[in-house]
Design a protein around this nucleic acid. Sequence first.
DNA 1: GGAGTTTTGGTCATTACGACCAATACCTTA
DNA 2: TAAGGTATTGGTCGTAATGACCAAAACTCC
Lengths: 250, 250
Amino acid sequence: MTKTPRDSRGPADYDLSRFPAFAVTVDVVILTMVESVLHVLLVQRGEAPFKGVWAIPGGFKRPTESLDEAAKRELVEETGVDAARLLAQFGAYGDPGRDPRMNVVTVGYLAVLRDVGSVVAGSDAAQADLVPVADVLEERIDLAFDHLMIIRDAVERARVELEVSGIATAFLGPTFTIAELRAVYEAIWGVQLDAANFRRSILGEDGWVIPVGRRARPGSSGGRPPELYRAGRAWRQSGPIHRTPTEERN
Amino acid sequence: MTKTPRDSRGPADYDLSRFPAFAVTVDVVILTMVESVLHVLLVQRGEAPFKGVWAIPGGFKRPTESLDEAAKRELVEETGVDAARLLAQFGAYGDPGRDPRMNVVTVGYLAVLRDVGSVVAGSDAAQADLVPVADVLEERIDLAFDHLMIIRDAVERARVELEVSGIATAFLGPTFTIAELRAVYEAIWGVQLDAANFRRSILGEDGWVIPVGRRARPGSSGGRPPELYRAGRAWRQSGPIHRTPTEERN
DNA sequence: GGAGTTTTGGTCATTACGACCAATACCTTA
DNA sequence: TAAGGTATTGGTCGTAATGACCAAAACTCC
């Protein structure tokens, strides 16, 4: 906290009115994969300021809940999905002018979901949509407040998290193919990975993926039907694939 | 932001009193190196609650400043050192009961200083001291509020930052020896690194350290006087030394 | 001058990894 | 049913990275 003996303000006076009051909100950047392209969930604001402008979902923190609980609640309210496992805080934002109405400090959370499409469709009142993050990062879409910066930080956090934790499988269903897993890495890092080498890295050490015995149906373009796997227990330690400064694609 | 169309509360009503008010503080975890041991700067609280208990320095954010500016200001007020370059936000904390007086959300910042010793000595009013982080992490020292958790997160952040950024040279002076640089890695990661291999990794690619032409005086235990170096330009990209899961020491 | 300590340089085996090629297995179309 | 296409799967190989270990160099202290 909070108050040190050297602070210039008065001594033991705990009158809240003597200290600046802030509204604290929680904003959730929801990332998901649609056809091997990284998407972010945006909602269209229904009121001023920034009425009609796209924004990331969020809401006020309640005094009786923690920040994590607030983020989890907002996620459920927005998508109906209870994905508490994949919810990481990545930053706080409190620039003086970021909200024209009042002093607001917001805490950004990153959530990774699979197949959020149907959930979004069921979302009634809000105009919600999944848009490619590339459209956001390259500023083809206007965002409210400082949400562009927030999404930038969230995506960067996702890139790092992909390397050090098991965030990759969170984008996928309970069973998946090696190619689907590789598509996650390629989409988030913006690189092209060799299919054979990627496979070797994943299967080389065991604990990452476990063959489930079945085969998936090949895509519409034919090809050999791939083996199906499920996530192993090693994902929460550290990721199996690491970025290299070379072979950049994007 | 803040407010989405699906939020359950009322529509365009921007009366601040309708939303829960929080105090927002900034707490700074100041890490430094004392004789190859990682230390954290703590202050002894002069008022209730937690009067006389050790805590990390911090203070209230002002509505006219950003979070980064608040952290920088607190750092200057506490240590007199203007080390704005090495100041990274690592987390926000807002559990309901974390401050018994009122609703406080705090944002944690990590600051890395070199040779903060004299600065601390000059700090008058506050009882300030540098304590080994090991004493804190192993709970040999009681801390106020949730500051133990905050320091835990800060140290973990420092460990990661050491790998991906040039945080290492921030612990050292303008010129340093390879052994001093290695000591930083060994202290923060709690590992033992081979001196020869470390040297090769640092000097192998250029851009990390630049020989300054002079030699340092050997330590009290004698030995060959080491070459002096200064930090190169490559440190802000990514770190030269990476952790390996093996050879753990601590 | 010798012992001790630290830096600095060298060798070597192992591993990791990217580039590339080829075989396999299935679908689609003719 | 046969041929072509596509994606998966397996293999080889050269290079880079790295850890273990040894030894020489340089200086201080006794």
